[in-house]
Design a protein around this nucleic acid. Structure first.
Lengths: 207, 207, 207, 207
DNA sequence: AATGAATGAGCCTTCATTCAT
DNA sequence: GATGAATGAAGGCTCATTCAT
C-alpha cells in the first residue's frame, strides 16, 4: 500500500489512545486529529464520522491483539490449559504494549454497551470464554452448568479485576507497580488460587 | 412541611437513575429535571450545578446503602469474617433494591475517575477493603504484604465481577437470572472458592 | 415612621453602592439583597422590580445630594459666581461622602442613557447648567450663543473629567490622591484656568 | 482569495457597532453574528469567545484610528504642539468616520474598566497623554509636577467632554450639530481657551 | 486527495421574577 | 408583612459535521 493510508493509520492509533483515555463521548475529534497531525475534517473524510471511527478502532485493535494465540490453551491437561489461559489473559490485561488501549476500551464498552459490544462478543469474547469454560468443565467432572458458570466466572473475574479496578487499586495501593515480574507473579497466583478453588468445588459437588 | 424537600429528593432519585444509565457527561440535566417533574433550573437552584448534584447523588446513595451493616464482619474466626464480608458485598452488588444505581455509578466512576472517586475511596472504600484485608492476613499467617494484596484482590475481584461485567454476562449467558436464591449461591460459592484459594496460598507460603 | 421601612432603606443604600460599582445590567439583585441583609424577593416586594429600584435609587441619591445648595452661586460678580459654581461641582464630583455613588451612577447613565436620564436632565441637570451658563454669558458680553455654549462646556468639562476619567487617571497617575486639600486645589485651579480662558474668549469676540 | 477573512472582517465591524451601542455585557453575540450575516458559532470559531472578540475589536479600532498621525504634534513651539494635539484629538473624538465606535467603546471602558483598559493605557493612551504633558510642561516653566498634571487634565477634559457627555449635550442643546465646521471651531476654541488658562497658571506660578 | 471555513444543534448556567405559605 | 421554593427565558459556549475549493 502506498503512503496514502498513512494519515488513516495515524488517525487510528491516535483515536485508540484518546478513546481509551477519555471514553467515546468525552473524546474530541479535534484532539484525535491534532494528535494524528491531521486536518480537523480528516476523521469524517476517512471514516465518515466519529462512530465509524470508533468501530474501526476496535477492529484495528483486536486485529493486532487477537493474534497472540489464545489457542495455545487448547492442548494439555485441564489444569495446564487453565494455567495457560490465565497467563495469557492476565498478560494481555496488564500489558503496556502497543495496543494497550484495547483493554481499556473493552472495559469502557462494558459499562456503556453499544452495538459494537455485540459484535465483539460474537467474534472474540465468546470463543475466548468458551475455551476457559471447557477447561473448567474438565476440572469439575460432576458439576452442573450453573456451577461451571460460577467457577469460570471466578477465574475470569480475577483477570479482569486489574482492568476495571485499576483506578481503585491506584488509590488503595499507590505503590503497586505492574512490572513484567509482578504481572508474572499475578498470573501464577490467579492460576494457583483458581485451581484450588475449583478443586474445592469439585470436592463439594462430589459429596 | 416535608414538602419542602420533595423536589430535592425527587431530583436526587432521578439523577441517580440517569447518571447510572448514561454516565456523568452524557446525562442531561434536562432529562433529570424532566424525570423529577421539576424545572430546568431546579438542579442549579437546589444543588448549584451538575457536578454538585453528582456528588450529592453519591452521598445519598452511600448513605442509603452503607446502613446495611458491613460491620457484622468484624468478629468471629477469619474464615467466618471473610464469608460474612463476601456475603455482604455480593448481595450489595447484585441487589435490585432501591439504590440499584449505586453500583452502576461506582462502576462508572472506576472507568472515568473524577475527584468524587478520591473522596469515596477515603470515606467508604478504603475502610471496607481494609476489613477484608485484615481477614485475609489472618488467613495467610506467613505471607508478605504483596501476597496479602493479591489474595484480597482475588476475593474482591469475584464480587465486583458481577458489577462490571454484567453486560458481557448478559450476552454470554442470556438465561442467567440473579434471583435472591442465585445471589445466595454465588455468595456461598465465592466464599468457598476464596477460602480454598487462600488455603492454597498459605500452604505455598509455608513450604 | 416605624421600622417598617428599615429594610427598604437598607436596600436603597446597598443598591446605590452596587449599581454604582457594577452598573445596572451587571448588578445582581441577589447581591443587593444580600448586602442589605434582606430576602431575595425583597426588591420585588418593596420596589416591584429591578428597574423601579434603579429609579428609586436615583431619586434617593439626588434627594440627599441636591440639598447642598448649588444656588449659593446666584449672587455676586460673575467671576465669583463661576468660582462658587466650580467649587461646588468639583467638590461634589470628587466627594467620598455618603452618597458617593451618585456621581458614579450619573456617569453610567451618560453612557447608557435610559428614560431616567431625561427626568434627571429636566429636574436637576438643566437648572444646574443654566446657572453656570448665566455666569459665563455675563463674562462674555459680546458673544453669541454658540460661543457661550462652548465656553460653558469647557468649564463643565474640567469638572466632570474627574468623574468619567478616574479609571484612566488611576492608571496614568497611580499616586494622585484626592485628599480634601487636593480637591480644593483642583477647584481653585479649574476656576482660575476657566476665568483666564473665558477672558481670552471675550477679547477675541470683542476684536 | 481575500474572501477568506471576509466573515471575520464583517464580524469585527458589526461587533464594533454593537459593543459601542450596548456595551460589553449587554451586547449579544447573536446580534453581532446576525448583523455580520454569520452563524451563531462564528464568533467562537474566529475569535474563541466573546471577550477575545472584544479585544480584537479594540485592536482593530485603534489600528484604523491611530494612523491619523498623532505625531505631527511633536515639533514646533509648545503652543503650536498643544494646538495641533488638541486639534487632532477633538477631531478624532467628534469624527463620524468609519471607526465611529472607537470613541464610544473607550468611553465605556472608562466606566467599566476591564483588563483591556490596562493594555490600552500602556499601548496607546499613555504615549498620547505624555505628548500633551510635554507641551504643557514647556508652557509652565516654573511649575511642579502636580500643576502640570492639573493643567494637562484641563486640556484633555475639554476634548473628552464631547465623548462622555454627548447624551447630556443632546438633551441640553438639541440643536447643537457637530458639522466639520463646528468641530473645527471647537478645536480652535479649546486650544485658545487652554493656552490662556495655562498662561494664567504660568503667571501665578512665577509670582 | 485533502483542507479550512462555516454551520447548527444542544447543553449548562445565570438571573429576574413569581407564587404559595 | 415577608419569605423560601420554584420558574422560564435567554445567553455563551462546545463540538461533530458539512461544503466549497
Amino acid at each position: 500500500m502506498p503512503a496514502v493510508d498513512a494519515t488513516r493509520a495515524r488517525l487510528l492509533e491516535a483515536a485508540g489512545d484518546i478513546f481509551a483515555r477519555d471514553g467515546y463521548r468525552a473524546a474530541r475529534v479535534r484532539d484525535i486529529c491534532a494528535a494524528a497531525g491531521a486536518n480537523l475534517a480528516a476523521v469524517n473524510y476517512h471514516f465518515g464520522g466519529k462512530l465509524p471511527l470508533y468501530r474501526a478502532v476496535f477492529a484495528h485493535g483486536f486485529a493486532c491483539a487477537a493474534l497472540s494465540a489464545a489457542d495455545r490453551a487448547t492442548s494439555g491437561t485441564p489444569a495446564a490449559r487453565l494455567t495457560a489461559w490465565v497467563d495469557d489473559f492476565v498478560h494481555r490485561v496488564l500489558a503496556d504494549g502497543k495496543p494497550a488501549w484495547v483493554g481499556k476500551l473493552m472495559a469502557r464498552e462494558m459499562n456503556d454497551p453499544t452495538a459494537v459490544l455485540d459484535e465483539l462478543v460474537a467474534t472474540h469474547i465468546r470463543p475466548h470464554f468458551t475455551a476457559l469454560e471447557s477447561a473448567v468443565r474438565a476440572l469439575l467432572p460432576a458439576a452442573d452448568d450453573a456451577s461451571v458458570r460460577r467457577g469460570a466466572s471466578s477465574v475470569v473475574a480475577q483477570c479482569v479485576f486489574y482492568l476495571h479496578s485499576r483506578a481503585i487499586i491506584a488509590r488503595l495501593h499507590p505503590g503497586w507497580r505492574f512490572s513484567p515480574d509482578e504481572v508474572g507473579r499475578i498470573a501464577a497466583h490467579v492460576a494457583r488460587f483458581s485451581l484450588a478453588g475449583l478443586a474445592a468445588m469439585a470436592k463439594v459437588a462430589k459429596s
